[in-house]
Write a protein that binds this DNA or RNA. Structure first.
Lengths: 285, 285
DNA sequence: ATGATGGGTATATAAACTATACGCATCTTC
DNA sequence: GAAGATGCGTATAGTTTATATACCCATCAT
């Protein structure tokens, strides 16, 4: 079967599963095929996945059967929700909108400067080819009130939950650091790399964070949290790169577990706090 | 031009732009077409986007020209980064991997219980058709240590930055509330709706949060933050649904701006705090 | 030099798709 | 309850797209 046909069958199944029904017109709109071809596709789908399709004459629409069994995809809630979040952002790009009758939805607006496509492109190139590169970077340090050209040897990208960082060797400070991608205004001058990616210890080393329900919660609440985090014996372990450990602390609000009035706010606490603090000290040194 | 051809040209351009080069083999792998067809596609691309393509005989690979001008897509860094994050998760689903030589990357691991596809599917159905539905829900309240069947009339989905909520009218408490999607274990019994989506005031009302750089920062740092958040006159306004306001506070760590030792941690503060607190009180009442 | 690899192209053939047309069932409108 | 609109199904002939196979060329490693 040709790739285009396969995609259309997948599309039919996607719509049936997540949106409950599909039309010839849906296929025509999505893929620009002719109406007879859309008919053939539906017939073909019925052949390949017998019993999944039921035509509702009254609604003039194919509906998913009660015992619908997907054969062209594995339904995954996270994937659907990720798509949903994308439709919110507006810019679709590669992923076209397979969601037609999406539910009303909204995500928290995270205000931020946009990342320049050309900057990202050049950084990716430097990572790929093992170059160093100069970035016109706005540092937060008080000594540098305006952006400066800095040479860095990038080797990876990291996401802290709110924004993306470049993980790179800094040719000025002679160590590996994070550079916030959106603070790179422009790039220039590829050059020789200043360090091997393998030497970025904090990036490659991972610390195993042990999480436990906040002991300030009631027992029944603790057990609910344990289920939420899929804990076994009231514990769950999360491997976190040391370079990301600081952001992990902040994102999960682990730094305030004890100081907060309401334990409800911080469902989990770090169970191996001493080791955690040591690792964090190492990472932020 | 047929949909499949268009997609292949788009793919060629995507790879050229973000990964710098492309091969016949890449096209064959991605779309399962024959080798001569991949050749034709490259020729066709050169026709449609003259000058973008340069064959590097030594590397045996087409490379993007220095003055590469995309014609089949608008390059968007956010879209690329969203794809990158998806590849991390593993589950691809609808979006196939257009990223071949992706850079090394990692995102913060957010430990969480998975959402059941069948649950989400049934909730979507209820929203779409305006039904109520029973969910086997694990509430956090101390009075309900184990999951219970609750009838709700869902009308929207909301994301708080860490997880998805169902926004629904609760038939037990007779008001609109958030239900954490991953705490819905199963669903059953569609029924009549208990309320109109329009009556969910906190969902439809939005509060305009005014954000300003943390005054505890130095002047130059404040101006950097102002740029980060694309502020004008040291302010930016963000429209937030009242139903999401509480999560906005938590996510941006706005509740600790003054208590924190290090203002660096909280780049922005709420400039219209009194109105904000009033709106928040209304939302959490 | 030799072979492996990757690209270009030509041919005949097969598959996929279009345009057009017509028939059928359901629902809405008058 | 007839008329019209809509949506599905299917048949035909013709076009586009893609395949399989073949052969040639350039570059590079050995």
């Amino acid at each position: 079967m040709r790739w285009g046909v396969e995609k259309r069958l997948e599309f039919i199944e996607f719509r049936l599963f997540w949106e409950g029904g599909i039309n010839r017109a849906d296929i025509v709109d999505q893929f620009g095929v002719s109406v007879p071809q859309a008919s053939k596709d539906l017939t073909l789908y019925e052949e390949k996945a017998p019993g999944n399709l039921i035509y509702d004459k009254s609604a003039k629409r194919y509906k998913a059967a009660d015992d619908f069994k997907p054969v062209f995809m594995q339904p995954n809630a996270s994937t659907y929700l990720a798509h949903l979040r994308e439709t919110n952002g507006g810019a679709s790009g590669v992923t076209e909108a397979w969601l037609a009758s999406a539910p009303e939805h909204d995500a928290l607006p995270i205000p931020h400067r946009r990342v320049e496509a050309d900057v990202l492109r050049d950084v990716l190139k430097a990572i790929r080819e093992g170059h160093s590169i100069e970035v016109f970077y706005q540092s937060m340090s008080a000594k540098k009130p305006s952006p400066e050209w800095r040479r860095i040897s990038p080797h990876a990208l990291g996401n802290d939950g709110l924004r993306w960082h470049i993980r790179a060797f800094c040719h000025i400070d002679h160590k590996f650091k994070d550079f916030i991608l959106s603070r790179c205004m422009k790039t220039r001058k590829h050059g020789l790399s200043g360090a091997s990616a393998n030497d970025d210890k904090l990036w490659h080393d991972r610390f195993v964070v042990a999480l436990a329900p906040n002991p300030a919660l009631s027992e029944s609440q603790r057990s609910i949290i344990a289920q939420d985090y899929e804990m076994t014996n009231g514990r769950t372990e999360v491997m976190v790169r040391k370079a990301l450990l600081y952001y992990f602390l902040k994102r999960l609000r682990l730094d305030f577990a004890d100081k907060l009035d309401n334990p409800h706010e911080v469902p989990v606490v770090v169970a191996n706090r001493a080791a955690f603090d040591a690792a964090l000290a190492e990472a932020t040194a």
